[in-house]
Amino acid sequence: MRSPRTRGRSGRPLSLLLALLCALRAKVCGASGQFELEILSMQNVNGELQNGNCCGGARNPGDRKCTRDECDTYFKVCLKEYQSRVTAGGPCSFGSGSTPVIGGNTFNLKASRGNDRNRIVLPFSFAWPRSYTLLVEAWDSSNDTVQPDSIIEKASHSGMINPSRQWQTLKQNTGVAHFEYQIRVTCDDYYYGFGCNKFCRPRDDFFGHYACDQNGNKTCMEGWMGPECNRAICRQGCSPKHGSCKLPGDCRCQYGWQGLYCDKCIPHPGCVHGICNEPWQCLCETNWGGQLCDKDLNYCGTHQPCLNGGTCSNTGPDKYQCSCPEGYSGPNCEIA
């Protein structure tokens, strides 16, 4: 077999650049994923090309098998939009790539799955459409700058595939050579959905506090709520009108309100015997008056200043008058 000629994957630097851009600016990249293909086995019993010639040398006159050299087999892949009637021409609109030389006439790579040499990765940054057309071609490398490479066999497949970690196996069982391969579509990290176009990256910072479920939905951490999980859940009972919080379990009062639940107004400074319904009010309790509710309107009842059976009459805020019984006098009937 001729010395292998290595063929790198098509578009790999571009895919790395796209992945970097997506990581830095995830909101700009609407989708991100990759179409993967792995060659599993190849069977070319006679070492022939599609045109019937030998990959190298002439045929044995007896059994008609190619004798001089085995094929240097590598694969090309073209991925494009779905076609009900597949045409070989036209651009590979979803991507293209190739393997290096991975074997001779016949080989089996099932035991070495995950080997990069027999895998082609086609990254995409558009919403995966699920339906596709795939062209797979086996080629013989001439290892010659003058002699062109020659095609051994080709296969085409049109179908639908959803993103999954599971592989789907396909076979080419007609023509001079048979080969088996597997395909799958996977979303990149933080991308979800059938189109790999739903973005969700767990975070716990100013912009949100959430994890992501298997469908890419945000699940808020304990103590947080809202579409972006950036609204803290305040202390139970915290007034929704007069209290708020920036951290879970907190209850910060608005100006003019106080209390554990921010449901108590702050009265006017200096208010003595008054209450409030709104901040800075001083609504006097019964029998109290004045701007600060510090004037006693029922001095008689509060202090009972009249002595010796005198009768007390309220005459104004903090004022009274005693009517003394016979034989007593003085402001409080204290003089006998």
Rank of each mutant, 00 (worst) to 15 (best):
H273P: 01
G237D: 05
T219A: 05
D205G: 08
K65E: 15
H157L: 14
L79F: 00
P267R: 10
N46S: 02
Y210C: 12
C200R: 07
E285A: 01
S41T: 04
I120N: 01
T99K: 03
P267L: 07
I183V: 10
Q50L: 07
E137Q: 07
C234R: 08
F199V: 04
C238R: 09
Y328D: 12
G195C: 11
N118I: 09
C55G: 08
F75L: 04
I102F: 09
L18V: 02
E334G: 09
P13L: 14
I275F: 00
Q168E: 12
G237A: 05
Y192H: 12
N44T: 06
E285D: 00
C29S: 05
W224L: 09
L292F: 08
Q254K: 02
Q172K: 03
T145P: 11
V146D: 07
R5W: 13
A58V: 09
C238S: 06
Y299D: 02
A155D: 08
N287I: 01
K198M: 14
G327E: 07
R12G: 06
L49Q: 07
G103E: 03
F194L: 10
S239C: 09
C238F: 06
C200G: 03
I275M: 00
D263H: 06
P91S: 14
T315K: 08
F107C: 04
A127V: 08
C324F: 01
Q304H: 08
D204E: 11
S313I: 15
E137A: 12
G11R: 06
P100A: 03
K319Q: 08
T315R: 11
R184C: 04
C284S: 00
E81K: 11
P202S: 10
V101A: 13
A19P: 03
Y328C: 04
I152N: 02
S158W: 12
Y190H: 10
V272F: 15
C333G: 03
I151F: 12
F206C: 06
I151T: 12
S239G: 12
F126C: 11
S96P: 07
Y299F: 00
S150C: 07
G223R: 15
D294Y: 05
T315S: 14
H303L: 15
H268R: 10
S323Y: 04
C262S: 02
R203K: 05
Y132S: 08
C312S: 00
Q214E: 10
Y255H: 06
G8R: 15
L170R: 11
R231I: 06
A111G: 06
C92G: 07
N230T: 07
C22R: 02
P331R: 11
G195D: 07
C234Y: 08
S93I: 09
D69G: 15
F194I: 04
F126L: 03
N108Y: 11
Y74S: 11
V45L: 08
S141F: 12
I183L: 13
N332Y: 15
G30R: 02
A31V: 06
L135F: 09
R130G: 09
P269S: 07
P129T: 04
C92Y: 05
D69A: 15
Y192D: 07
Q50K: 04
N108D: 12
E278D: 09
G259A: 03
T87K: 04
A155T: 10
N298S: 00
L122R: 03
N197T: 14
Y74C: 09
G57S: 12
D72H: 13
I233N: 04
N44K: 07
R25Q: 14
S329T: 08
S84T: 02
N60S: 07
E153D: 12
Y190D: 10
F124Y: 02
G310A: 07
Q168L: 05
C293W: 00
G270E: 05
Y190F: 09
K246T: 08
D250N: 05
K241T: 09
Q34H: 09
L79H: 01
G249S: 04
H209Q: 03
V146I: 09
L109V: 14
I275V: 01
R85S: 08
P129S: 12
V45A: 03
R2S: 08
D205Y: 03
E38D: 07
V86A: 12
S164G: 12
A336P: 08
M221T: 06
E222V: 12
I335S: 14
F199L: 08
G30A: 00
S131C: 02
S323A: 07
F206S: 06
V176I: 09
D250E: 09
E180K: 07
C22S: 06
W139C: 09
P91R: 09
Q236H: 07
T302A: 09
K65M: 13
K246R: 13
P279S: 10
T145N: 05
Q34E: 01
Y328S: 03
S142R: 12
R2G: 10
K295T: 08
D69N: 12
Y181F: 10
I120V: 08
E36Q: 01
P163L: 03
C22F: 13
F124C: 01
G52A: 04
P279R: 08
E48G: 06
K171E: 12
A19S: 13
E153A: 10
G195A: 04
